[in-house]
């Protein structure tokens, strides 16, 4: 089985799927000859031509809106790239009011099979506007799928799953994982279904619920705790809307202790929702407070190195939170 990093998995899947389905077209800023600023679309323009890999005007609202208009015809299956998730907000109204609501408001007469890819996340000296986690804004919206795959295997399988849907998908990729995270990704066809979390590490004493880069750090932290004799189960949500309630609740019922870890702001976040779910549906199984570990509730990741380091999570910080909860 091939070992590759996240960006290679993304690129390979885009190429394979475009070879298979001529309806797929890619649009975004610099996705053409340049191959995207993160190289996600490298070589695709050269292989598929300017009618299938389209450099757009620098205008996120209409990158999404034209994607909607293309998708509505059924002629094409657009995958649009928002260069940085931080810049998705001009398109927010198009995503909320149009893409997400089209099916509902027309009783499925019109549907928007559109994939919106967006690199998010910090730790790359991107400062306030190249580091943000924006998933909570979208996870709030009925009608959207919101995913945050963070391994090569999941990126391949979930991109394929997204392409099989007739509904809009927000496909968030943690940009620091692009080259940092390597793993096995089989050549052959497979799907990672939407709405299914993965158990990355099994354990009986404590459940960590996470996604993205923080999930990888949580696995490292869980390894440290294992050496100390504490068994930590790490759940990778992968899909943020809809949540995999079954996997979450089953693990919590087993361990009785929950630590929710993510890089997004804590207030009204995916973690808030997971905590509410557990509080309501697994209260009597809990042996400790539902605990959250996130960066501080400040606007976003500051640029200066000491501040960035203080903001970002890491295995040590997560291990500390695990120890505290385990000792409760």
């Amino acid at each position: 089985m091939a070992i590759m990093n996240n960006i290679e998995a993304l690129r390979e899947t885009l190429r394979q799927e475009m070879e298979r389905d001529p309806r797929i077209i890619i649009m975004g800023e610099d996705v053409g000859p340049r191959g995207g600023v993160f190289r996600a679309t490298q070589g695709l323009y050269q292989q598929f031509g300017e009618n299938r890999v389209i450099d757009t005007p620098l205008a996120e609202l209409s990158i999404v809106a034209t994607g909607i208009g293309l998708a509505l015809t059924g002629y094409f299956k657009p995958i649009v790239e928002i260069q940085f998730a931080d810049f998705i907000f001009p398109a927010f109204n198009q995503i909320l009011s149009e893409a997400a609501r089209m099916r509902y408001r027309t009783r499925s007469d019109w549907t928007v099979p559109l994939i919106i890819r967006a690199p998010y996340g910090g730790g790359i000296s991107g400062g306030l506007y190249h580091s943000q986690s924006v998933e909570a804004f979208f996870a709030h919206i009925p009608g959207l799928y919101v995913v945050a795959p963070s391994t090569p295997y999941d990126i391949k399988g979930m991109l394929r799953a997204a392409l099989q849907l007739e509904d809009p998908v927000l496909f968030f990729e943690h940009k620091k994982t692009y080259r940092l995270i390597k793993g096995e990704a089989p050549e052959e066809d497979y799907i990672v279904p939407m709405g299914k979390a993965a158990i990355r590490r099994e354990g009986d004493d404590l459940t960590v619920i996470s996604y993205g880069l923080a999930m990888h750090d949580s696995v490292k932290a869980a390894d440290m705790l294992a050496a100390e004799g504490v068994g930590v189960e790490v759940i990778d949500l992968r899909t943020l809307r809809p949540l995999d309630k079954e996997t979450i609740l089953a693990s919590v019922k087993k361990t009785g202790k929950v630590l929710i870890v993510h890089e997004d702001n804590p207030t009204v976040s995916v973690g808030s929702e997971v905590a509410a779910l557990i509080g309501q549906e697994a209260f009597e199984y809990l042996d400790g407070p539902i605990t959250r570990l996130t960066p501080p509730d400040v606007p976003a990741v500051p640029f200066s190195h000491p501040l960035q380091d203080a903001f970002m999570l890491n295995p040590e910080k997560i291990a500390k939170a695990m120890r505290e909860l385990a000792a409760y």
Partner: peptide
Amino acid sequence: SSPVATQVPIAAGTALASKLK
């Protein structure tokens, strides 16, 4: 929908679909 003008860039996308096809 109700928010005004959202249909304009969507329509441009549809016109692009016809042209590409």
